[in-house]
Design a protein around this nucleic acid. Structure first.
Lengths: 168, 168
DNA sequence: ATCTTGTTTCAAAAATTATTGAAAGTTTTA
DNA sequence: TAAAACTTTCAATAATTTTTGAAACAAGAT
């Protein structure tokens, strides 16, 4: 396997992983491409390397920027837009956790709070329902705190602590 | 909001959350339904409550059993299959983590190991590539360890430790 | 002012994923 | 052994999501 093949494998794998986690394959692939790139890439570079259309490249690059995983940069004397990605893997992980927390975890916690406060005769059925909802919410709130902690942590500090936690 | 509405909201939300994380909506909804059910549900109960076909219900119930999130139970003197779900939210979380680790994290770690050991002239481009792949793999391996730890942990113990970790 | 270079939009098409429903399969009962 | 009760399978269909590509838009160069 040469370098070019290895890069392709990485990009493919990143795309497949994204798909499994509800992220557009192309978005994940562009991210991988930028992650591996030694210099900023233009829309045309991306189109060419992934064999995708201009519209698709544009749309997914902008989505990556919304996630704050890519940035637009300008090259001196050129009119084209170029793109780069954050290369610090820990920062990427924190950013993804932060965004998904905000978009998915927080809304569901709000919903669980609502439905946990349901009115009605306190019979066994209602009690059992409230119990489950409460437990799910408790897990969600704990996960939220964990993510908040991760977002504020340094890579080495966090994993060192985790390692010690489980090795005692 | 009455109890019935609240249950529906929960089932809907569970389905939506599943979808965002790459899990079939119906599978997630059936899981929610079983989670809230006070007694085992038959395929017909599921079909009726979610307005889905027999084939769909059957397929997704079996998928839930593959994830070890649901079990088949038999009612005395009845020929129908009935289904129940694990109700312990922490056990569910551990199980999902365990399964996704095995299916998605482990394969990608193996791939990263492979492409990290790429041969070639040790120029800057190759060095930069290997560095990124190594860092991604490091994160993945750490995540793997964290999940292994979680899978072995009691709910209260784990969250207590996490809480202390970030409050110091 | 208009040409050139480049970006964005979005309706239509394609690809992917999920669902249906009827036929085939299985097990129990009579 | 045949009918009844129930489950499984899977090709066809439907729904959803992604992608295309051409037109509209924007901004700098001439």
């Amino acid at each position: 396997m040469n370098l070019k093949e290895a890069k392709q494998q990485f990009v493919q794998a990143w795309g497949a992983l994204g798909t499994q986690w509800g992220i557009n394959k192309t978005m994940a692939q562009i991210h991988a491409l930028l992650l591996l790139a030694n210099e900023p890439l233009s829309t045309e570079d991306i189109m060419e390397q992934l064999s995708i259309s201009r519209g698709n490249a544009n749309m997914n690059v902008r989505e990556l920027m919304e996630w704050a995983l890519a940035d637009k940069v300008f090259k001196f004397g050129e009119r084209k837009d170029y793109f780069i990605a954050e290369k610090d893997v820990w920062k990427i992980a924190r950013q993804v956790a932060k965004i998904r927390k905000k978009r998915e975890l927080e809304p569901i916690i709000r919903l669980l709070e609502q439905i946990e406060n349901i009115e009605g005769i306190k019979n066994d059925e209602l009690k059992a329902f409230v119990k489950i909802v409460h437990e799910v919410r408790r897990l969600a709130v704990n996960a939220e705190r964990l993510i908040d902690g991760i977002v504020k942590s340094e890579d080495s500090w966090f994993w060192d602590k985790v390692f010690k936690l489980f090795s005692k």
